[in-house]
Computed example of a mutant assay.
Amino acid sequence: MQSPWVQRTLAIIYPPRCLGCGGLVENTMGLCGDCWRDTSFIAGLTCGKCGTPLPGESDTGETCDDCLRISRPWGAGRSVFQYRGTGRKLVLALKHGDQHDIVGPAAIWMARAARELMENDTLIIPVPLHPWRLLKRRYNQSGLLANALAKRTGHQFCGDALMRVRHTESLDGKNRDARFATLTNAITANPKRAAMIEGRNILIVDDVMTSGATLAAATEACFTAKAAEVRVVALARVGKDT
Rank of each mutant, 00 (worst) to 15 (best):
A181R: 15
R17H: 12
I124D: 05
W36Y: 11
L149N: 13
P4M: 08
D206T: 03
S58N: 08
N185T: 09
G30Y: 01
E198T: 14
Y139V: 02
R84L: 11
A114D: 01
T188S: 13
T39G: 04
V238M: 10
W5M: 12
S58A: 15
G239P: 02
L134K: 03
E198G: 08
Q156N: 10
W109P: 01
L144E: 12
L24W: 13
F180T: 04
V6Y: 14
E119C: 15
G44D: 08
L215E: 08
R166D: 10
S170R: 15
T224K: 10
A111E: 01
M163G: 01
L134F: 05
N201I: 00
L117R: 06
I202E: 01
H155L: 13
L90E: 01
W132E: 06
V233D: 00
W132L: 08
D241R: 13
D101G: 08
E169Q: 14
H96T: 05
V205T: 00
S71R: 15
M110A: 04
R231T: 12
G56L: 06
L92I: 14
A181D: 12
N201D: 07
D65P: 07
A228L: 14
T39I: 07
K89E: 12
A236R: 06
L235T: 05
Q82L: 14
I12G: 02
G173V: 05
D101I: 09
L129P: 00
M209N: 05
R88Y: 03
R8C: 03
L68Q: 14
R84S: 14
E220T: 11
A217R: 13
R137H: 06
A227I: 06
C222D: 02
G199M: 06
T60P: 02
C64I: 04
L129C: 07
L19P: 08
I187Y: 04
A218D: 02
R200L: 09
A146Y: 02
G51S: 11
R115M: 12
M209I: 07
S170F: 14
G33T: 04
P131G: 12
N185R: 15
Y14F: 15
A236L: 04
A150K: 11
K192N: 03
H100M: 09
L235N: 12
F180M: 04
R231H: 09
E229P: 00
P128V: 06
E57Y: 14
M118K: 10
L123Y: 01
A227E: 11
K95Q: 07
T63D: 10
D34C: 03
A93K: 14
F157E: 00
D98F: 11
R166K: 15
Q7C: 11
F41S: 05
R138N: 02
C35I: 08
Y14T: 03
P191N: 07
D59L: 14
R69E: 13
C18G: 03
K151Q: 09
E169Y: 13
G33Q: 14
R138K: 15
M196A: 12
V232K: 00
I124H: 03
E169D: 13
A107W: 06
Y139N: 09
A228M: 12
G61M: 10
A107Q: 00
G23L: 03
S3M: 07
A181L: 15
R137S: 02
Y83G: 06
P73G: 08
W132I: 03
G20Q: 10
L135N: 11
T52G: 07
A113Y: 09
A227F: 10
L24S: 10
G154T: 09
A227N: 06
R137W: 04
T242M: 06
I187Q: 00
N140M: 04
G154Q: 10
P16A: 13
I124A: 06
R237L: 06
